[in-house]
Computed example of a mutant assay.
Amino acid sequence: MAQAAFEELVEDFEFLDDWEDRYRLVIEEGKAMAPLDAALKVPATKVEGCASQVWLHVTPEDGVMQFEGESDAMIVNGLIAVLRKLYCGAALSEVVAIDARAEMARLGLNDHLSAQRSNGLRAMIERIRDVAAKSL
């Protein structure tokens, strides 16, 4: 169910044996994202439950998920980029059906994130899924 961009990321991860290399790839994905417009860094877009500052501007269009985001932590910026690959371009009905935990497990992320980062990732996923469900 994951988007093609996410499947490509899974393939990239399969070539990396070392978790540190995978971690670096996640960070590089975050660095490649355009920064979020400062005007969008408002309380309404802030994701609660994250150890770092995180903003997600979720904008479903024509039944398709779209969002952009930013964090003040490099690894979290990378996680936002990973979530964009997982969700952006998916039909809203697919967004609510995607088992994000299982998809992230394919990257090995569930085993290598701190409890705080895992909670933050869960909060971002909940925000995306909630907006999708309300937009159906």
Rank of each mutant, 00 (worst) to 15 (best):
K31M: 05
E7K: 10
Q66C: 15
D130P: 01
A2N: 03
E14Y: 15
G49P: 07
A105R: 07
R117T: 08
S71D: 08
F13C: 12
D72A: 12
S114K: 13
V131K: 03
V64P: 13
H112R: 12
M104L: 14
E28S: 15
D18Y: 10
S52E: 05
L83P: 01
D21W: 08
H57I: 01
F13N: 06
R129D: 05
F15N: 13
M33Q: 04
A102P: 01
G78E: 02
T45M: 12
L79R: 01
L9S: 10
V47F: 09
R106D: 00
A38P: 04
E7M: 12
D130F: 07
S71A: 14
E126L: 11
D17S: 07
D21P: 12
E11T: 07
E20S: 06
L40P: 10
A90Y: 09
A132V: 05
A5L: 07
Y23I: 03
A91W: 09
D37Q: 14
V47S: 08
L92I: 07
L40D: 15
R127A: 11
A73T: 03
A100L: 07
T45F: 11
Q3I: 07
L9I: 05
I98T: 02
G89R: 05
A39C: 03
A44G: 08
E68K: 12
R24D: 15
L113V: 15
V76M: 07
E68A: 14
A73E: 02
M74A: 15
G120H: 13
R84M: 09
L40K: 15
M33V: 00
Q66W: 12
V47I: 15
V131E: 02
E7G: 07
T59W: 00
A38G: 05
A73Q: 02
A90S: 14
M65E: 06
V10E: 14
A102N: 05
L121T: 10
E126F: 01
R127G: 04
P60F: 11
N119W: 05
A5C: 00
M124H: 04
W55A: 04
A34C: 07
N119C: 02
S118I: 03
V10G: 14
K85N: 00
E70L: 11
R106V: 01
E28G: 12
M104Q: 13
A102L: 04
D18C: 09
I80S: 07
D99R: 01
V42E: 06
